[in-house]
Computed example of a mutant assay.
Amino acid sequence: MKTNDFDYNLPEELIAQTPLEVRSNSKLLVVNKNNIDLKHDTFNNIIDYLNEGDVLVLNNTKVIPARLYGVKEDTKANIEILLLNQFSTNAWEALVKPARRVKLGTSISFGNGLLKVVCTEVLDEGIRHFDLIYDGDLEEILDQLGEMPLPPYIHQKLDNQSRYQTVYSKITGSAASPTAGLHFTKELLNNIREKGIIIQYVTLHVGLGTFRPVKVDDVKKHKMHSEFYMMDEKTANILNGAKEEGRNIVAVGTTSVRTLETVMNKYNEFREASGFTDIFIYPGYEFKAVDTLITNFHLPKSTLLMLVSAFSSKEIIMNAYHEAIKQKYRFFSFGDSMIIKNQ
């Protein structure tokens, strides 16, 4: 299986640069996971494709303003870091530019010393480990000094930073938003509950994998970076009940999928669990947890597109993407959505 098998041509004007004024007004492409039948709708009507008793699983991670601009304390050279994974209270993994300037022991200052970081380990591909030094609350300091880490294909400044958060974001720690959830409003979620659909939350902090393209020709040789996940006991019990009774588990976004499949693969059931996952899902993978997937449109040759193709088939998903391009859907983080299910 070749990475180029998951390539497609996307006109640049279809890359959404800003969110819609109303989150749920995005287009919705309804995909039959078993054939090429398609239907066009709007996300406001997502409830029509969910059944009473379904469990809708959302990733409640909260994006931190993780992009920081500082200076080396010795040379005053400008350094940019992007915080990715938190190992302990003050120990973080980060992506650095320019990486060549940051060596073991390098000290970088942000906000005239409001925050300092010291490099404790040098890794490949611009990755460094840092100890963070500060007084007070780190989240407040990052809110003051940091920027939302918008993907590189978004060139316009985001005026309202909250639009890169889901309305249910809660657990701080992500370097990118779980963007399939950006379409939900609080009103829509209330309507979904009123229909008898059960809403539950898992956590996966989106990290380095979001920013790394697949660089190998053979898909199977790609190495995923690990990301922290968490599922609580209540959610596990509800999901196990749904499985036992044959009710659908509907995952919102590839991050929810990876969390659910990680736990099911590890325990052969849902359990209270947390840890780091580097699960890589591509065609040939047998899904054990998820019945229906709500997702955005993903970059060519990306691991996300491979996961979505695995959930249906490469042929069906590529057909859906070509139709979305033909109908001028908006793509990527602030773009439109699709639901993939048994019809």
Rank of each mutant, 00 (worst) to 15 (best):
138 L>N: 00
193 R>V: 12
17 Q>N: 10
111 G>V: 05
143 D>E: 13
41 D>L: 02
334 F>V: 00
329 Y>M: 11
195 K>G: 07
196 G>D: 13
150 L>N: 04
279 I>E: 05
226 S>C: 09
40 H>Y: 13
190 N>A: 15
147 E>V: 00
19 P>F: 07
197 I>M: 09
86 Q>G: 10
155 H>N: 13
153 Y>T: 05
226 S>N: 11
294 I>M: 10
8 Y>D: 02
124 D>S: 14
97 K>N: 12
333 S>G: 10
19 P>Y: 10
31 V>K: 11
245 E>H: 13
11 P>S: 13
50 L>E: 05
66 A>L: 12
114 L>M: 15
134 Y>F: 14
265 N>V: 01
211 F>M: 06
341 K>P: 00
336 D>C: 01
87 F>G: 02
145 L>Q: 04
74 D>L: 07
252 V>W: 06
44 N>K: 15
156 Q>V: 07
52 E>L: 00
66 A>W: 08
157 K>P: 01
21 E>K: 14
338 M>R: 04
76 K>S: 12
130 F>H: 07
161 Q>H: 05
249 I>C: 02
39 K>P: 00
170 K>Y: 10
131 D>I: 03
319 N>H: 15
319 N>D: 14
204 L>G: 07
125 E>P: 00
22 V>P: 00
21 E>W: 04
90 N>A: 12
23 R>G: 08
159 D>G: 10
84 L>N: 08
5 D>E: 15
73 E>P: 01
274 S>E: 08
190 N>Q: 15
221 K>C: 09
58 L>G: 06
275 G>Q: 05
194 E>Q: 15
297 F>C: 07
